[in-house]
Amino acid sequence: MSAATVGLRAPRPAYAFFVLPFVAIYALLLLWPLAKGVWISFHDHDLLSDDSLWVGLGNYRELLNDEVFHQVVWNTIRFVAISTPIFVVLSLALALALNRPGRLAALLRATFFCASVFSVTLITLVWKLALMPERGLVAQLFAALGIPELPLLTSDNLALLTIALVTVWWIIGLPMILFLSALQQIPSDIYEAAALDNTPRWRVLTHITLPSLKRAIVLVALIEVIREFQVFPQIMLMTNGGPNNTTRSIVQFIYEQAFMQLSLGYATAASQVLLAIMLVGVSAQLWLERDKGGQR
């Protein structure tokens, strides 16, 4: 190895200046707000004043005994458990169906993706009109089919499921595009070899396509878990947490505590609990996938 090569590989303090801007921005935009949030959660902090009282773990103990917080945590976990599998399965099915040339497939891909760029206000307005009792499109469809009208947004058992389905309809385009991108990375010669061997389609799907999409499936699942744990605007606009508190999410609870009750310390403590739950959920997902698929 030449002296010049050794010189290039030798550590130099000046190299740190290349990563210093990134480290500074990362610390400013992520690490500092995170540390500041943890600090505020240990205080009884009023949003309208700079006065704060150190309470230590008092906010967390209060959350532990808060029945409303227990309910919103359970609601959010249920929402994630309902919506994430639907996102993964349905977006994968759409990607498999639309992964072909032709104008119709391109039009359908664009149609599904365009819905995800609409604002949440527009989506919830359209669906609230469609779900109106008696006069809404869904109610009229049920009446035409002879099905009794269902209280989709006013039932304790159906409201959260309805919002989950609306959310899936709204943003199914992004995971579909991720799966399409992953499908197009699979070498075509593998499928050509399977076709020469007259391999049945279901074996091609289970032995070639799905194993090749393992990383994409994990990525989509993780993205959706993180996104759905932060669900808020569609719930706020469609049911405002009702009926009977059955659709109120953790983020809505944080919003109400911070900006309606003006209890910033309590709201920040709830946000730290949400962060911990999300980290546990993502870690569990990664561990399960590694356990199923072995070392990558």
Rank of each mutant, 00 (worst) to 15 (best):
I235T: 09
L237F: 15
Q252S: 01
R248M: 14
R248Y: 11
V231Q: 12
N245L: 11
M236D: 14
F232H: 11
Q234P: 07
F259Q: 09
V231G: 03
R248P: 06
R248C: 01
T239P: 01
N240E: 08
G241V: 03
G242L: 05
Q234C: 00
P243S: 02
I235G: 02
P243H: 02
T247C: 07
G242T: 06
R227C: 01
F229Q: 06
Q257N: 13
P233A: 10
F229L: 14
Q230Y: 12
M236E: 15
R227V: 07
Y255E: 08
E228Q: 14
T247F: 04
Q234W: 07
Q230R: 14
N240L: 05
F259V: 06
S249R: 02
M236V: 10
T246R: 13
R248N: 10
R248A: 13
I235D: 03
T239K: 03
V251S: 10
R227L: 11
E228N: 15
G241D: 06
V231F: 13
A258S: 00
F229E: 10
Q252D: 09
I250W: 10
Q252Y: 12
T246Q: 13
T247S: 05
Q230T: 11
G242E: 09
Q234L: 14
L237G: 10
Q257I: 01
Q257V: 02
I250K: 02
F232A: 04
P233K: 10
F232G: 02
M238Y: 06
A258P: 00
F253W: 08
R227S: 14
N240A: 14
T247D: 10
F229K: 03
L237R: 10
N240T: 00
Q234S: 10
Q230E: 12
T239M: 04
T246S: 14
Q234V: 12
Q257G: 10
A258D: 01
G242W: 09
Q252G: 01
Y255T: 03
T246Y: 06
T246D: 02
G242R: 08
I235E: 08
F232E: 05
I254C: 03
N244C: 07
A258Q: 00
Q230V: 02
V251N: 07
V251I: 14
N244V: 15
R227N: 13
N245A: 01
V231I: 15
F232W: 11
G242I: 07
V251H: 08
M236K: 10
A258M: 03
I235V: 15
M236F: 15
R227F: 12
E228Y: 15
Q257C: 03
N240K: 09
P243G: 01
M236I: 04
N244H: 15
I250D: 04
F253I: 07
